[in-house]
């Protein structure tokens, strides 16, 4: 049985439909990524699964517990790392974990061992008695990961776990996430809009746009669905129709002097294609990425609508409601 199962999960705020009927089946041990632009409904979906946001309609089960009817049992089974940092910056690293351990009812006999174990896993043992206000962004994130896994949740939710970190720290944070998920045998559900990173980490991704899942598969499969590699050639008067007829070519598009061809196994067939062209100025071959998949499915770039930090207004409304209602 799937560890997370949702059916037509829906959330509306007044007239705004933040999430419009999401069906998910996530298997135990998977690292699953929810990808989508700001305001697509990622955070709202995770919020509902964590029982922080009330479900409007549909159903959701986590490890066999009903999210709507048994929120308390669900809360014990999930760990959450929020998008915005939620560490208690007056407390030390260890104290943050102690607070969390008590809130999750981890017995005293077991508490210190478990805290030490997690601190070691995120390499924060030597800084554990420092106030977290003095931690760097990467350290804070790692401590939050440790906190999220402290009570051995069946599912760990990570909402934009690398947001606001520099590229090097982001790479390290992903390494920690992979390592911890493996060691703790935890299912991980994460949201991100760093497509390249999701590609490397996730076993499967769901692409979400306007509150709907529009594609769900392993990153490699999604990329294959693009019809092969993308070749961009600047050349004069290319014989578009003849190129189209080639058996390994899926699509051809010629505009502004740039010929865009999607083709299977470009490394084998490119030479033949080039022989058909005159005055070739430059050739670019691109293996498709998840970003390309996203552009193809939604017709726009994931980061097009707004900077990373400022959510779209739907997300803002969602956040406002969360706090104000």
């Amino acid at each position: 049985m799937a560890i997370i199962e949702t059916k037509s999960l829906t959330k509306t705020y007044g007239k705004i439909q933040a999430v419009r009927g999401i069906d998910l089946n996530i298997e135990k041990g998977e690292i699953f990524g929810l990808l989508g632009p700001n305001g697509a409904g990622k955070t709202t979906t995770i919020g509902m699964l964590c029982t922080i946001i009330n479900v409007t309609s549909g159903s959701a089960f986590i490890a066999g517990c009903n999210v709507i009817k048994e929120p308390d049992r669900v809360r014990r089974k999930v760990g959450i790392v929020f998008q915005d940092p939620t560490l208690d910056t007056v407390l030390t690293g260890r104290e943050n974990l102690e607070l969390h351990a008590r809130l999750y009812g981890i017995s005293a006999a077991y508490r210190q061992n478990r805290i030490d174990e997690m601190l070691e896993l995120v390499d924060l043992k030597d800084r554990s008695n420092d106030i977290t206000r003095t931690y760097s962004g990467g350290m804070r994130r790692r401590l939050e990961l440790a906190r999220g896994l402290l009570h051995k949740p069946a599912v760990l939710f990570l909402d934009e776990p690398t947001l606001g970190l520099d590229p090097q720290t982001r790479a390290r944070t992903w390494e920690y996430i992979k390592k911890m998920a493996k060691m703790e045998q935890t299912t991980v559900v994460l949201t991100t809009h760093y497509m390249e990173e999701a590609e490397q980490v996730c076993d499967r991704v769901g692409i979400i746009d306007h509150g709907r899942i529009i594609a769900i598969d392993a990153p490699d499969n999604l990329k294959e669905s693009m019809g092969g590699d993308l070749v961009v050639i600047r050349a004069k008067d290319p014989p578009v129709e003849r190129i189209k007829a080639l058996h390994y070519v899926s699509t051809v598009n010629f505009s502004d002097g740039a010929l865009e061809v999607t083709m299977k196994e470009a490394h084998l067939h490119l030479a033949e294609l080039l022989l058909m062209l005159r005055d070739v100025e430059c050739v670019e071959v691109r293996v498709p990425t998840l970003s390309d998949v996203f552009i193809k499915l939604t017709g726009r770039d994931i980061r097009e609508d707004g900077s990373e930090d400022s959510g779209s207004w739907v997300d803002s409304v969602a956040r406002y409601r969360q706090k104000g209602n």
Binding site: D72, R73, R75, T86, D88, H100, L103
Partner: peptide, 15 residues
């Protein structure tokens, strides 16, 4: 506390 989201992590605990 709410502004700094300190309370958020406490409020999602099973308490």
């Amino acid at each position: 506390d709410r502004k700094l989201d300190v309370l958020k992590a406490v409020l999602v605990a099973p308490v």
